[in-house]
Every structure is written in structure tokens, then in C-alpha cells.
Nucleic acid binder design. Structure first.
Lengths: 400, 400
DNA sequence: TCGACTTATTATAAGTCTTGAACTATGGTC
DNA sequence: GACCATAGTTCAAGACTTATAATAAGTCGA
């Protein structure tokens, strides 16, 4: 509604974006098809594709056999037009990956980090080192990079990162990185970037209204409304883990009582299992894996509790957001999902209203936890597409 | 993101919409100011306003004193350019109101209805009768009416109305009304239209991300994201009342257990009070009023429970939607609000995450229950503004 | 009362963009 | 090899916007 002013120039930009988007998201196409898909006239398509080809963003990709006429020449996005970098800053690692423009993985660098050593300086250093290493490996220069997307364990607001779990409170990470590179940066919550990856390449392909839940040690969600992430007034929307499912219930690490996270987060599940006398390995992931594969009455009981609470939580999501699909993700979600999905569906059905429930499918995510970096890399690409292939403005250095 | 094709023609439409919106929402303005506010050049503003004046949508509204130059002539939307009608279909009444284009009330017609007699036919008849009566009263013809907005007790999807509480399941109300009038119709959930009214004229003025809760006998919410209603995949978003706040909790009229509505809806509150031995009048509104004004230990206890559950529910809303403001509305909300607001705020603070909570203000609504019809009337106006003052296409009658 | 000065609006010229129709290119078919 | 079908390009026309110049309508001071 509150869109910016339109000038006749923006028409071209908009149409470039339309064409480029169609080409990017839906394979090689001929100019003719593009005209149909975008609704533009053939003349305009010819014009626009001409520009895109001249800019090196689009290339020809062979012909399609004709059956009685001039054969169509296919166009596609040039994967080598630019490099995109995705970064996953987790609680135990920093992962930097380079992709081509179509997001095929070209190089990977991973740094392990001890939990508790997350000084922002250290993280920034790792990111820059990983960036350099990846670029060297594929023989690219900084100018070839469209942008760097960074998925972080916390909220990002005005370039400041607030990550409770790593003890960051208003860390100016963007500014710190800016000292080491001029490449455009895109910072976002890792939950959001993983959601974005699932939306583009996983269980959310082609879906416009989705909620991607992320169950790990903690619990979050990424809400997609009409194809774009729903952010709320300051980018903090989708904090599903701290919705209350039981007044005066279990204590949560956020300090409140009865948060969903305390019931279905990995830590909450394991604590609960141990408190009832179960024994599992010390490592969280191993513990959860062992719990999921064991078939004791106790394990069954604990897992059933988890499924019920997850179902309740998902039911509420369906009521509130009326999504077309709910995707169950996160490393713990992946582990639990196959076993619990039927119970979760059943419980969600009990608690959601019939109509919205019938319209929502509940599915497992298709990408693993490595999707954070991939999703982060979609951020610069999304901007690139929206801008119709115009590179972000590069700041002009002031002389002397 | 998935916007429609742009043609050079749409530029004008977009700019007309910009100018008209500025004029509508922000009082009389001179052409000069309009140029600043909309970002258009003076020439374009002159052009566009010329058209709008020629179309009778905008009129001059006096001069502003000059201090050494040609005085500015003020422009404003012509209230008499069109009539808008808003309808409130409640569980006990059908209310039809006519407004001028700036939504000043011109005429009102109200029909009482016995609960349980909501045959769709009867309702449609009342709406059409009310429409006719209002138009006669103000001496307007059907062609003068920009549109009729209708707030309904249920979800609207593809022109079909699903209202559990009145026993409507897929009622084709739009088609039924179409038989009696050619005026463009806009059907929506009454909760949404009340929210819309609050957004334009009440506690949500100027706010882009808000959740307007509506507590009556039942409980709902209207979510505003970036200035427009958030609808989800089929218009059913915002079903706040049936989010679960207690696993295996109180039974709700929807059939599930532990719904928020069972704890903070008027019916739930009164049932609870009675079950603990309290006595109140039979009428729901009178009962709630008596409960709120009484100062017994029992009343205090019940109200405290309500405040806690409402606080929990609002805290979850804040976590999930990250709104700038949460507005407490509905007739029961209005009754309870003044007394419970401090407790509600406190409990919400306990359950929401610090950051989103700090950014959200929790306030009482400013309009009464009569806002449903007013809000319904905003629907045609919103469309009118978005279209830059183009009247909805009138179907051309096919020749006999 | 007149002329200089200020500010608001309107007219005009220049430039960008889309479209639709005419036109060219490239293959198959008889 | 003539003819047909389909793909893609070129170009004049029309619709907009913006800058700039021109015009309108006041105030102020002599």
C-alpha cells in the first residue's frame, strides 16, 4: 500500500525484475514463453532480454526443436555472472560457503568454535577468513561477489545483533565486517535464512503462505506471508518457542514459565526424560537420537508428550496464520519428525479449527541443518532479482 | 513481490492513488504540499488534481493566507462525491448505515433479530431493506453508492460465508444480495471490519503493524501487517480465540479443550464465576458488567484469572507477530479493559520476550461495538483509494 | 497607486517506456 | 523450390514524468 513513488523509469526496472525472476525461478525459457508468463509484449521482452544479455546476466541455452517454424532459443540466468556467499554462524561453528548465481555450491570453509567463546571479534575474523579462503579457492575476486548473506543465532535490528544464547546484546557485526570488506552484507536470523532455503529449494517450493518451524536446542519459526518473510515491526516476528502452552508450566531458559520451547526443544525433552529416570549420552544430539530410537515405555511416554505439545503449538500457528503449509524443521525436528509426525498431525487437528486445518498440510522439511548458509545466500540473490539485476549501488570513495 | 504487470498507464493510476490517499487521510492540502508529500513533481500534481477535480472527486476548500505571494488553494476530497454503506450482521441484529465518502454517518437503520433465526434469506432481506431505507432517507440513488461493506459473524471465502455461531456453512450471501442490487459488495468477517475501523479512526491510527483483539462472547483478532489486513491463505488468519493456553484445559464451544476463548470470552468468564458460586444476571452483558463492578473476593479471583490468561495470550501474540501495538477491543474487552489492563500488561510482560514486548504498546480500543459497520464501510473506500478514484467497473448489461 | 518581489499553478519541451503492427529470420512440408 | 508456420526485431505512436519557462495572484514599500 505504502509503496514508493513511481517514475516511468521504474517500469523498466519492474519489468526487468519480472523477466529475470521468471527466468531464475523457472528454468530456461524462450522469449516467446517469457512474454506469455510475464504478460509483457514480445517487443518489450526482446528489449529487456537484450539488456540482460548485454549485461551478462542472462545467456542463451540452446534451441528447442521446432515443428514447423523458427525454433525457439532458450534463455537462462548465467550462473557465472556472479558469486554469492552464505554464512552460518552457529553456536559451535562458523560455516562459509560460496555459490554461483543459481546457488550451486562452489566452495566451503568451516571453523569449529568452542561454545562460550563467541566474542564477536572472533566470529567476524572467522567470517572474513572464510570469505577470503572460499574466494581464493574458486579464483574469484571481491568484486565478483554479489553479496554475503549471514545467518545468525539471534535477532538483527538496524545492523545490531541481539543473540541471547551467545551473549550478544547489540553487537555491531555489520560495521565490524565492513572494516574488512566492501561486499554488500545481509544479516538475518539463522532461523529465517533456513526457512528461506526451505522455501526456495525444500518443502516450501511454490508455496506463498507457510510457517517453517525450527526445532533445535531452542525453538523458532519463520513465517512466510504472500511469498515474503513476515517480520513484524522490528524483524522479531515468529518467536514461536516462547508462546505459552501451559500457565505456570515448566521453566524456560528465557525466564518465563510454560513456554513451548521447554516442552519440545531438544534440551527440554532430554531434561524431561532424565528427570523421569531415563539415561542418554551427554551430547544433546546423540541423546535425542538415542531417545528417538529407543522403544521403552518411558521413551514412548516422553515422545508422546512432545508430540502433543508440538501438535498444540502447530494448531495455534494454523489458527493464527492460516498457512498453506507448516514445515517441521531444525535438527531436532528432523530427528523427531519421522516418528512423531502422525501424532503431531492428530493433535494439531484436535486443536486447530477445522477449516484452516483442512487447508494446511504439515510436512517435514527436506533440507538438513546445512540449509542455514544456503538460505543466507538467497538473501543477496532475492535483492538482485527484485532489483531486476541491477547490482547494489557501490559507494563511491571520496577522493583523498 | 508477485505484483501484476506494469504498463505506463498504471503510473498515472498509481500517482492518482498517491495523491488521493494523501488528500483523504491527511486533510485539506494545497497542490504545493501534495507535491512534497507524494514526491511527485508539481506538474504531475497539477495534472492529477486537475483530473480528480474534473471527476468531482476532489474540490477546492478555500485559500490559505499568503505571506507575500500567491496564496495556496486548498484541496480536499469531496464528501458528497459518493455514498458508502456499512452493514453489521451480528448475532442479534442487522445494522445498516450510510456514510458520505469521508465516512461521516448520514443514516442508520437497525433490525433486531432473535438469536437462532438467522436464516440467510432473512438476513439478506434485512440488508436490502436497510439499504433501500437508508438511501431513501438521504435521497440517494443506487448509482451514487460506491459500495456496500458487510461485516459478518464468520469467515468469508470465495463469496461463501462460514459462520459456526449462526449455523451458516457456505452460505452464498453475495450471490443472494446480488439478486437485489448491483452495488459492489465487500464481505468480510466482522472482527476484521471492526479492526479496520479501529485502525482508521481509533487506537490504531498511524500504526502499520497492529493486532486488534476482539473479546466478546467469543474471542478473535484482526492482524494488520504493514498497513493492510493479514489474511493468510484463505482469509482465516487471526483466530486467536482458539489458540491453546492449557493442554487438556476447559472445554471450548469449538469442541477442543484449553482454548483461550474458554478462559477470557464472556461466556467462559461467566460460566467460571457461576461454577464457583457467584450469581449474576442471565443476560451476558449485564452479567459481565455486574461481575466487573463487584468487589468480592470471588470476583477478584475470577477477574485475576482472566487477566492472567489474557496476558498470556497477548504475550504470545507479541512474540509471534511483533506488532507495534496490541489493541484490546470487543464489547467484553471494553468492559473488562479498564479494570484489567494493568494486570494484563504485567502478565504479558512476564510471558513475552523482552525485546518485542518493549516495542509493543497494549491499549484499549477507542471505538465501541458500533465500529463493525463503520469498519465495513472502509472496505469500499479503501478500494476506491487504491484505485486512485476509479469507480469499480460496472458490468455492462448485455442487450436483450 | 505603481512596481518590485514572492510564491503558486499551468504550459511546454524533452526524454523514457510500452505496445502493436509490420517486418525479418529460420525452420518444416509438399 | 514455393509456401507456410512460428520466433524474434524494429519502429512509429501514444502515455507519462520531469525540468524549465511562463503566467497568475498576492504582499510590501515608496
Amino acid at each position: 500500500m505504502h509503496r514508493g513513488k513511481l517514475t516511468v523509469r521504474d517500469l523498466r526496472a519492474g519489468n526487468r525484475a519480472r523477466v529475470l525472476r521468471a527466468l531464475y525461478l523457472d528454468g530456461p525459457r524462450s522469449r516467446h514463453e517469457l512474454a506469455e508468463v510475464t504478460g509483457l509484449s514480445q517487443g518489450s521482452v526482446s528489449n529487456v532480454t537484450g539488456e540482460l544479455i548485454a549485461d551478462g546476466i542472462v545467456v542463451e541455452a540452446g534451441h528447442v526443436d521446432s515443428d514447423g517454424g523458427r525454433p525457439r532459443v532458450l534463455l537462462r540466468v548465467n550462473p557465472r555472472h556472479a558469486v554469492v556467499v552464505g554464512v552460518d554462524v552457529g553456536e559451535t561453528h562458523v560455516l562459509v560457503e560460496a555459490f554461483d548465481l543459481t546457488l550451486r555450491r562452489l566452495a566451503t570453509t568451516k571453523f569449529a568454535m568452542q561454545p562460550g567463546t563467541h566474542s564477536a571479534d572472533e566470529v567476524a575474523k572467522r567470517i572474513l577468513a572464510g570469505l577470503r579462503r572460499c574466494l581464493t579457492e574458486i579464483g574469484a575476486r571481491q568484486g565478483d561477489v554479489l553479496g554475503v548473506g549471514i545467518g545468525l543465532p539471534g535477532l538483527v535490528e538496524h545492523g545490531l545483533v541481539h543473540g541471547q544464547t551467545v551473549g550478544w546484546d547489540g553487537v555491531p557485526l555489520e560495521r565490524m565486517l565492513r572494516a574488512g570488506t566492501n561486499i554488500p552484507l545481509h544479516l538475518d536470523n539463522g532461523a529465517n535464512t533456513a526457512g528461506q532455503a526451505e522455501l526456495w529449494f525444500g518443502a516450501g517450493r511454490g508455496i506463498d503462505d507457510a510457517v517453517i518451524t525450527l526445532i533445535g536446542s531452542g525453538v523458532g519459526a519463520s513465517v512466510i506471508a504472500e511469498g515474503v518473510p513476515y517480520r513484524g515491526t522490528s524483524g522479531g516476528a515468529g518467536e514461536w518457542g516462547h508462546t505459552t502452552v501451559a500457565l505456570d508450566g515448566r521453566e524456560c531458559r528465557c525466564g518465563a514459565f510454560g513456554c513451548l520451547e521447554a516442552y519440545i526443544g531438544a534440551k527440554g525433552i532430554i531434561d524431561r526424560y532424565r528427570s523421569l529416570g531415563g539415561t542418554v549420552p551427554a551430547d544433546q544430539e546423540a541423546a535425542l537420537r538415542s531417545l528417538v530410537t529407543s522403544d521403552t515405555a518411558l521413551a514412548r511416554q516422553v515422545l508422546h508428550e512432545v508430540a502433543r505439545h508440538a501438535g498444540v503449538g502447530i494448531g495455534s500457528l494454523i489458527n493464527l496464520f492460516n498457512p498453506e503449509r507448516v514445515i517441521l524443521g531444525g535438527w531436532a525436528g528432523l530427528l523427531l519428525g519421522p516418528r512423531l509426525l502422525p501424532d503431531i498431525r492428530e493433535e494439531a487437528a484436535r486443536h486447530a479449527l477445522r477449516r484452516p486445518f483442512a487447508q494446511a498440510s504439515i510436512m517435514l522439511c527436506e533440507l538438513g541443518p546445512e540449509s542455514v548458509a544456503l538460505g543466507a545466500a538467497t538473501l543477496p540473490v532475492a535483492e538482485f532479482l527484485a532489483a531486476g539485476g541491477a547490482r547494489p549501488v557501490t559507494r563511491i570513495r571520496t577522493a583523498g
